[in-house]
């Protein structure tokens, strides 16, 4: 049984077809990579799954329930966590408070005007921070965190919503090669432990071939290939539009 199922998804902007007829699914604990040239429609596809955009055609279902047509907030409530290409955290809060916000939201305690936040879910937040290795930085402001730590904080915040599906938009952009692999292996471990399905876009082919169970290749809004690492690497169409001639040589 798949967590996420996308059927015949399509979207056009002002007459230009950005995404058309895309179908795929992701299973619990599976890491699915979405690759393709810039402008191939990856962001559009991603935003349709995350609720930021409404599709013109097709459907998105999460655990059997349709989520296409819902806004980003409702999609999040259904159990979709998300990290952003440009890290987005709450800058006026500490690392722990960032995670507490996700927990408070998940437990529907946001509309409380009286009780102090300091007393709510501190221990649970610390436990999540420990899972991503940030427990020592719980009291720090997010503004002073190193880039790689911010990415891990985003991961912990996304986990606070107990997601069934995790959407990661270029999770390793701007990181050093060794950090990239470390972050994605951490994601891989959490996904396996918690049975979370992960859909991510990525430009670093080392990362993709290293951690993805399956790879989707998008070009001009349509899926042109789907398969595991070796199959994608050998696919002539993918080499022509995306990987180029020296694929995998580094």
């Amino acid at each position: 049984m798949s967590v996420l199922s996308v059927q015949g998804l399509g979207k056009s902007f002002g007459g230009v077809q950005a995404v058309s007829g895309v179908s795929f699914s992701v299973a619990p604990g599976e890491m699915l990579a979405l690759i393709g040239p810039n402008g191939a429609g990856k962001s559009t596809l991603f935003n349709m799954v995350g609720g930021q955009l409404q599709p013109d055609a097709g459907s998105v279902t999460l655990g059997g329930a349709t989520i296409s047509g819902l806004g980003p907030r409702a999609v999040a409530r259904q159990g979709v966590g998300r990290t952003f290409q440009i890290t987005a955290t709450f800058g006026s809060m500490t690392v722990r408070e960032n995670v507490q916000m996700a927990l408070l939201s998940h437990r529907r305690e946001i509309w409380c005007f009286w009780r102090s936040v300091a007393e709510r879910f501190g221990a649970e937040a610390d436990a999540l921070l420990a899972q991503v290795g940030l427990e020592a930085q719980a009291e720090r402001a997010t503004g002073v965190l190193a880039y790689g730590d911010l990415k891990r904080l985003e991961l912990a915040v996304a986990l606070g919503n107990a997601p069934r599906l995790l959407l990661m938009d270029e999770p390793t952009a701007g990181m050093a090669p060794a950090e990239r692999v470390a972050l994605m292996q951490l994601t891989r471990r959490l996904a396996t432990e918690r049975g979370i399905a992960v859909l991510f876009t990525e430009h670093d082919m080392d990362v993709v071939f290293d951690v993805a169970d399956r790879i989707l290749v998008l070009d001009r809004g349509a899926l042109i290939a789907e398969g595991d690492g070796p199959a994608i690497r050998a696919n002539p169409a993918v080499r022509a539009v995306y990987l180029g001639t020296d694929a995998g040589s580094h």
Binding site: G50, G71, P72, R73, A76, R77, G81, R82, F84, A88, T89, F90, G91, S92, M93, E97, Q100, M101, A102, L104, S105, H106, E109, I110, W111, C112, F113, W114, R115, S116, V117, A118, R120, V157, A158, G160, N161
Partner: peptide, 29 residues
Amino acid sequence: RRALYAPYGYALRAARDSTPRARAIGLDV
């Protein structure tokens, strides 16, 4: 002041700090 240190006040601040992130954790911005 009390409201600002309560979950509501924090959520309000969260929506200001990063609207996309606030929506992504399910806050009604």
